[in-house]
Amino acid sequence: MRKLNKKQASLLNTGRQLFWKYGFKRVTIEEICREANTSKMTFYKYFPNKLELAKAVFDSVVDESLAHFQKILHADLPPSDKMKQLLMAKMEGTHDISKEFLADFYGDAELGLKDHIEQKTQETWSTMRKDFERAQENGLFRKDLNLDFYIYVSQKMIEIINDPYLNSLYSSADQLIMEFTNLLLYGVSPHKYPLCVA
């Protein structure tokens, strides 16, 4: 990834914070510029519109998460510690995520984000599949785990977390995401008992 200058990084970080909290539709370019302490002229220098900023925000979040995931997988740690770190990373990464963000970014095909997200997600899962194969070889994941099944179910998480009934069971979106993540991680763990995150 090319290095961002301060203004560009500030717009990305501000966009991320506002989209995370309010979703895509409710956030305006004016609000982003005000919070980033920059002008609309500067905004348009880096991003032609709000949609392109949202795509850049999503890509940076995914790339950052993937790098963190790979760092944990390659760390010289026992499998149980790696699992705990993976759970903690997911908890930190989804902290305070809003239902509006999930609905706008993943559920609303009219906004123009869904296709981009699906393409980026496919690319990321392709990379992660290789990491999962190594994780199986190293004993982090069960040897008998069907990786194609696991990846397919993981990708279905987007549909699941936007389900109105499931959303009604949790007070926040990050709680539902962590419930699903715990289920998936415990299901791939080679250990007899589930891991607990303090």
Rank of each mutant, 00 (worst) to 15 (best):
Q8F: 00
A9I: 02
L11I: 12
N13A: 15
G15W: 04
R16V: 01
L18T: 10
G23T: 07
F24R: 05
R26V: 08
T28A: 07
T28L: 03
I29N: 06
E30M: 06
C33E: 04
T38Y: 02
T42A: 13
T42S: 13
F43K: 08
F43A: 10
K45Y: 10
K45D: 02
Y46T: 03
F47L: 09
F47W: 08
F47R: 05
F47G: 07
N49Q: 11
L51M: 12
L51G: 05
K55H: 14
K55V: 08
F58I: 14
F58T: 12
F58S: 04
F58C: 03
S60E: 12
E64F: 10
F69S: 06
Q70W: 01
L73D: 04
H74K: 12
A75V: 01
D76E: 13
D76L: 02
L77P: 04
S80M: 08
D81L: 12
D81P: 00
D81T: 00
K82V: 05
K82H: 04
M83R: 09
Q85I: 04
Q85E: 11
L86K: 07
M91K: 15
M91Y: 15
H95G: 00
H95W: 06
D96H: 11
I97F: 05
I97E: 04
F101D: 06
A103C: 01
D104T: 11
F105Y: 15
G107E: 06
E110P: 00
E110T: 07
L111Y: 14
G112R: 08
G112V: 11
L113S: 11
L113N: 11
L113H: 12
H116P: 12
I117N: 00
Q119E: 15
K120I: 04
T121Y: 12
E123F: 03
T127A: 06
T127I: 13
M128F: 08
R129D: 03
D131P: 00
N138C: 08
R142I: 04
K143Y: 03
N146V: 10
N146Y: 02
